[in-house]
Design a protein around this nucleic acid. Structure first.
Length: 463
RNA sequence: GUCCCUAUCGUCUAGAGGCCUAGGACAAUACCCUUUCACGGUAUGAACCGGGGUUCGAAUCCCCGUGGGGACGCCA
């Protein structure tokens, strides 16, 4: 049997971190088993679905590198098929017309809630042998309801949560087609999963409650029931549920924030899934190791600090040319003139070990492109008269250096330190402030070398 | 309210009845490295939600609480 998984978002917003992890796990499972990963857009909510959201989801998946093998399929383009199945069900008695109005339904629900009962359809239009149905009212377009089994249980072995069973008595006859004839979510999913030959449904655990309904419809259709794996949700950094109002951002925001996609992927893979003590692994390893047995059943809290750490690890490993490209993109985006900069590739080497994200890397490269001036506060603190005097001496000594390489530059600094009878930081810190606009940097002699003689002398001149 | 899911350090997790004096990672703290800030290294503190069972033996199995989450739409 070929494994076929799917990711089926509704295009009502961007791809957020929870959706991304669901997609990642579905993708990985298909890849692991040499199967197919299908992208399906569930756009039957016409009012809220937008083409922009479809694009945003695809952009997010592209950034992460989660490629699909089939699709995107759009549910709105499959209307004829859904209607065909509904007609079949109406004909064979597994579905029926219901003429209850929304007002009547609201009244029914209010009554049930008042009695502290679970709100549900009472089956007044459900045909039973020997039962007298109400008179069909005039002027009402009926909905179509699924005739759910009245007794027994529906159970499945969830690949994450274990055996789950629900009594059919908990389930009511849910609507599969609205009064205007359009099919509803729980029905479309079933027809799609069936038609598309989905073998493993990997989705968020907010769908656990839909699963028994879907299994019952599948059974009514005579379709094979796929395996289900319900992933727990991801909570925000503060343990609160992620929502549009609270903390949920597009995965592409992580790009803007300077994260490498492989760091986000590694983090997401590790959030709710584990392979022993392994923390840092490539997507190749992940695909090789991924299984449904080691997925955590409970919700996981997002931890930005750990993501930051992973990102730093991936930046250290990353190719310099790639990092430079990312940094330039960011600097240019800020309007920084990068055209006159030299040795930027070497500056990357100086900083890639120390930064947490690409934006920090870009900031670090900024003074290697154009002069960056320290704030008045920093200047006042570090550029004292004594410091300026020392820098004047240093300038002379640097001027005399013939071969502009770190050991020679270091010697010039040491000479200055000795001449003024001060400690190293008394020279190195003000020097950093003048050259880079801030008091911290990598090894100062390296910085001097990479900055180049012309740039260093010009900036010392400008004190 | 009813139904469903869930519960190990602050966080992500390892853990399939004896390997657990509960392991790893992030974070924290201390020290080392260092001309600064980082990086890196070393070390330390930090958890099995509570109560009952089952068993020679329970973090692991069962039950009951409690906490957390989800669902109960002509949304998906």
């Amino acid at each position: 049997m070929t494994v076929r998984t799917r990711f089926a978002p509704s295009p009502t917003g961007f791809l957020h971190i929870g959706g991304a992890r669901t997609a990642l796990f579905s993708w990985a499972y298909a890849r692991r088993h040499g199967g197919q990963f299908i992208l399906r857009i569930e756009d039957t909510d016409v009012a809220r679905s937008t083409p922009e959201a479809v694009q945003a989801i695809i952009d997010g998946m592209n950034w992460l590198g989660l490629s699909h093998d089939e699709g995107p399929f759009y549910q709105m383009q499959r209307m004829d098929r859904y209607k065909e199945v509904i007609q079949q069900m109406l004909a064979n008695g597994t579905a029926y017309y219901c003429y209850t109005s929304k007002e009547e339904l609201d009244a029914l629900r209010a009554k049930q809630e008042a009695k502290k009962e679970k709100p549900r359809y009472d089956g007044r239009w459900r045909p039973e042998s020997g039962k007298q149905l109400p008179v069909i009212p005039a002027g009402i377009d009926p909905v179509v309801r699924f005739k759910n089994p009245a007794t027994g249980i529906v159970a499945w072995h969830d690949q994450v949560k274990g055996r789950i069973e629900i009594s059919n008595e908990e389930l009511d006859d849910f609507i599969i087609a609205r009064a205007d004839g359009t099919p509803t979510y729980n029905f479309c999913v079933v027809v799609d999963d069936w038609d598309m030959g989905i073998t493993h449904v990997i989705r968020g655990d907010d769908h656990v409650n839909n699963t028994p309904r879907q299994i019952n419809v599948l059974a009514a259709l005579g379709a094979t029931v796929p395996l289900y794996a319900h992933l727990s949700m991801i909570l925000g950094d503060d343990g609160q549920k992620l929502s549009k109002r609270h903390g949920a951002v597009s995965v592409t925001q992580y790009d803007d924030d300077g994260y490498l996609p492989e760091a986000v992927l590694n983090y997401l893979a590790r959030l709710g899934w584990s392979h022993g003590d392994d923390e840092l692994f490539s997507m190749e390893q992940f695909v090789q190791w991924f299984d449904l047995d080691h997925i955590t059943a409970s919700a996981a809290q997002f931890n930005t600090e750990k993501l930051n750490w992973l990102n730093a690890q991936y930046i250290k490993q990353a190719d310099n040319a790639r990092l430079l490209n990312e940094a330039l993109k960011r600097l240019n985006g800020q309007g920084v003139d990068t055209s006159k900069a030299q040795n930027l590739d070497r500056a990357i080497g100086l900083y890639k070990e120390r930064v947490t994200n690409l934006n920090e890397l870009a900031d670090a490269l900024h003074p290697f492109c154009v002069a960056v001036h320290a704030t008045e506060e920093v200047k006042a603190q570090h550029l004292t008269d004594a410091a300026k005097a020392a820098l004047a001496t240093l300038k002379e000594k640097l001027d005399a250096v013939t071969d502009w390489i770190a050991p020679n530059l270091n010697a010039a600094i040491k000479d200055t330190v000795a001449a003024h009878g001060v400690k190293m930081p008394a020279v190195a810190i003000p020097l950093r402030v003048v050259l880079l606009g801030q008091p911290q940097s990598p090894s100062i002699d390296q910085v001097l070398e990479v900055l180049g003689r012309e740039c260093v002398m010009a900036r010392l001149q400008a004190i």
